[in-house]
Design a protein around this nucleic acid. Structure first.
Lengths: 237, 237
DNA sequence: CGGGAAGTTGACACTCCTCAATCCCAGTGG
DNA sequence: CCACTGGGATTGAGGAGTGTCAACTTCCCG
């Protein structure tokens, strides 16, 4: 299932056979996690990064009163915490939203890659910069988009990111998240997410139900979210 | 004035004489900009990065209706667009908020650094990851903090980032931004920023006036913003 | 068949926005 | 020297969007 990660990398740059081999060799083990499981806690020193192979994870921060803000969703093929390689500890938690399968890549092995494969290093640096670009787009959503726009933009982003790894097409994709999860992504409440999803459905844009996002009209959905895919830095979009 | 950049780096890691020399040698020229000047436009390919020496810049994205979201503020010592080294074009604009002085570092020279100074490369990769951490903290602000908390958190962040480069102490710092600028950082309107600043002043936390942030009670200000400085990844905080 | 989690809906409250008027102040020019 | 100008700050009144609370329904799974 590491193919999804390779597909993600190839969607943004070239990858040689040697580099692919180095990535495969860097994996020390595979792990499975149940849903709602914290896999990296904020502030704790870590010595490995986690390559998500299947399922959905998220990065989140929260306030004293328990309000939670998800700062990024991770889809299969993503490194959930490649940034911990340079940061050593994280400023946020990482948890699974669904049952997940992941590959573990020790930082020691990443360090060896940075010494032997400068081009691959650049590609991974690039990767953490794309994460930052996603954070910026979410800041725009959180600060300026309406509830309708926030959800529309989120569904557009996931459509493209999942399509890259073969888990979505223009008709939609599976997304086994709760409305509370979506609320924590968009800075809304679960109640308001529910109302807004109803609105999007009645407007003929998207239907979210039973763990599936069914896109009714991709062009209008993108318009509603003012979605400009360039922030994802894909080569063929 | 490059000392501010060196101070920023040293606040997060060690820097050898050779590395310092390499940084100095990478600068190709110095430039001055007036206020409200776009220095990098979204989507345009760039071949250099901009090291801010004096003044304030910001990264921002906007919506069709003209609503603007600033995604990060830059203070002296920051690379405003180091991420363009790997991304090649940016998904957002960068503009000056005040008159600025900057050093230009061609990507060609950065590439040479990545080939000769692996440790310094790691330090710069780290730097872009700290930018991402700042983005995440802002997502938390934008999504979950109240108006009061958003502004309090912002003033705490700037206090620390400016202190690192010698431009702030615990009593405050100069910040020549308008209330509209602050609104675009926090996802509020200038009117509501004005009311909230009044509230913060009357609560004895902070007084913002005449281009200066006067901190009246740092501990309470940090409490109001639920400010936890660990996301800035400073060694001595 | 029962229980619990997730989704749905209504009534009402509150934060923040909109619009508009006024004030303040620095810079400019007669 | 002082009216004039324009950008920014301040304040008030009213409104829109989203949150809160609570009840109820649906669905899944043991």
């Amino acid at each position: 299932m590491i193919e999804r990660h390779l597909a993600k990398l190839r969607a943004r740059g070239d990858l040689s056979q040697e580099e692919e081999q180095a990535i495969r060799a860097a994996i020390s083990e595979y792990r499975d996690y149940p849903a709602d499981c914290t896999i990296i806690a904020a502030g704790v020193e870590v010595d490995h990064s986690t390559l998500l192979l299947d399922g959905f994870m998220c990065r989140y921060k929260d306030l004293r009163n328990g309000q939670r803000q998800i700062t990024e969703l991770h889809v299969p093929g993503d490194f959930a915490d490649l940034h911990s390689f340079t940061l050593k500890y994280l400023d946020h938690d990482i948890m699974t939203l669904t049952p997940c399968r992941a590959a573990i890549v020790p930082h020691e092995n990443l360090r060896r890659i940075t010494e032997q494969f400068p081009h691959l290093t650049r590609l991974y640096w690039f990767g953490t910069n794309v994460d930052a670009a996603i954070h910026r787009e979410w800041e725009l959503s959180l600060g300026r988009r309406t509830a309708r726009g926030k959800l529309a933009a989120l569904f557009c982003e996931l459509q493209l990111r999942l399509q890259v790894v073969g888990l979505a097409d223009e008709q939609g994709y599976d997304l086994p998240l709760t409305q509370t999860d979506l609320a924590e992504c968009t800075g809304l409440t679960n109640v308001h997410v529910n109302r807004t999803l109803k609105e999007l459905r009645e407007a003929g844009l998207v239907e979210v139900q039973g763990g599936r996002v069914a896109i009714l009209n991709l062009a209008d959905l993108r318009r509603a979210g003012e979605f400009d895919p360039r922030y994802l830095y894909l080569r063929n979009v």
